[in-house]
C-alpha cells in the first residue's frame, strides 16, 4: 500500500513539474513584456517585474499599426472561415449524400491532394495570381478558401455527414424536400460540432499564417499581425519588450478561442479518425 502511495505521489510530482516547464515560456513572455529595457537586460532573472510597466504595450501601438493589422487579420481569417464553412459543407454533402458519376474516384483524388506538399504549387500559384493582377490584394489569401482550398476540411465534414442518420433525410425526401433543403435544414443544424471544429482550425490556420501574407502582400498597410510582427522584428531586433508585447497581444485571441472551444480541439482530432 505504501509503495502505491509513493508511486502516486511521484506521478503527481512529475506531472506538475512538466506542467511548470510548459508554463515558463508564457510567464517569461508576459514578464518581459512588462519590463523596461533596463530590466529586460538586467543580470537577474525576475519573473515579476519591479515595477510593472505597460509602456511596451503603448509603444507597440506607436511603432506599428497594431489595430489596423488586427483588423486585416480578422478580416482575412473571417472570410476564409466563411469560405471553408460554405463551400466545404456543400462539397462534403455532395460526397456524403448525393449519388453522382465519378464521385468515389474524385474522392480518392481529393484524398491524394491532401498528401501533396504545398511547395509543389507555390510557384505556379504565384504566377497565376500575378497574371490575374492579384498580387498585393487579399484575393490570393481568401478566394481559395471559397473554392475549398483545404481539402482536409471536406474530408472532416464528409466523415461527420456520413454519421448523420439517413432516416431523417429519407423522410424529408419522401415529403418532397430537395437536396438543398435537406442540406440546409437537416444536415447543417445537426453538424454544428463538426462545423465548429472547422471554424476553430481555420481560425488557428489563418490567424497565424505567415507564408501567404509574406509572398502576396507588399504594401505595409495591408499586412497581417504575423507579417507585421516579422517585419518589426527584422527592423528592431533588440526591442525585446515591445516584441514580447506584440506577441502577447497576438496570442490573446488564440488563447481565448482555445479556452472557449476546448472540446472542439479534442473532437476535431477524434473526427479525423486518428484514434488508432
Amino acid at each position: 500500500m505504501n509503495r502505491k502511495i509513493l508511486r502516486e505521489g511521484g506521478h503527481h510530482l512529475a506531472m506538475w513539474a512538466v506542467a511548470l516547464v510548459m508554463v515558463l515560456p508564457f510567464l517569461w513572455l508576459l514578464s518581459s513584456s512588462l519590463k523596461t529595457p533596463e530590466q529586460v537586460f538586467s543580470k537577474e532573472v525576475d519573473f515579476i517585474p519591479d515595477p510593472i510597466v505597460w509602456t511596451n504595450y503603448t509603444k507597440s501601438f506607436e511603432y506599428m499599426p497594431v489595430l489596423l493589422y488586427t483588423r486585416n487579420t480578422v478580416l482575412i481569417t473571417l472570410l476564409c472561415t466563411i469560405g471553408y464553412l460554405t463551400s466545404g459543407s456543400l462539397v462534403a454533402y455532395a460526397f456524403a449524400r448525393i449519388q453522382w458519376p465519378g464521385r468515389d474516384f474524385l474522392f480518392i483524388v481529393l484524398l491524394a491532394t491532401m498528401m501533396l506538399p504545398p511547395q509543389v504549387t507555390i510557384v505556379p500559384l504565384f504566377v497565376i495570381f500575378r497574371h490575374l493582377g492579384w498580387i498585393d490584394t487579399y484575393y490570393p489569401l481568401v478566394v481559395p478558401s471559397f473554392l475549398t482550398g483545404w481539402p482536409f476540411f471536406i474530408f472532416l465534414l464528409r466523415q461527420f455527414f456520413l454519421s448523420v442518420p439517413t432516416e431523417l433525410s429519407e423522410a424529408a425526401k419522401v415529403d418532397g424536400a430537395s437536396h438543398f433543403q435537406i442540406y440546409s435544414r437537416i444536415i447543417l443544424p445537426l453538424s454544428k460540432p463538426a462545423l465548429a471544429v472547422v471554424a476553430v482550425f481555420s481560425f488557428l490556420l489563418h490567424w497565424n499564417d505567415f507564408f501567404g501574407p509574406l509572398i502576396y502582400l507588399a504594401d505595409d498597410s495591408k499586412f497581417t499581425l504575423a507579417l507585421g510582427l516579422a517585419v518589426f522584428k527584422s527592423n528592431h531586433p533588440s526591442e525585446w519588450g515591445i516584441l514580447m508585447a506584440v506577441s502577447a497581444l497576438m496570442l490573446i485571441p488564440t488563447i481565448l478561442v482555445f479556452f472557449f472551444c476546448q472540446k472542439y480541439f479534442v473532437e476535431g482530432i477524434n473526427l479525423t479518425g486518428l484514434k488508432g
Binding site: 463551400s87 456543400l90 462539397v91 454533402y93 455532395a94 460526397f95 448525393i98 449519388q99 453522382w100 464521385r103 474524385l106 483524388v109 481529393l110 491532394t113 501533396l116 509543389v120 504549387t121 505556379p124 500559384l125 497565376i128 481559395p144 471559397f146 473554392l147 475549398t148 482550398g149 481539402p151 471536406i154 430537395s178 437536396h179 442540406y183
Partner: peptide
C-alpha cells in the same frame, strides 16, 4: 447534376489551384 453542382466549388478549386498548378 445536383451532385456536380454541390461539388462544383471543389471541382473548380481542384482544377485552378490543384491540377493546373501541378
Amino acid at each position: 447534376l445536383t451532385g456536380f453542382l454541390f461539388a462544383s466549388p471543389w471541382l473548380v478549386g481542384f482544377l485552378v489551384f490543384g491540377l493546373v498548378p501541378i
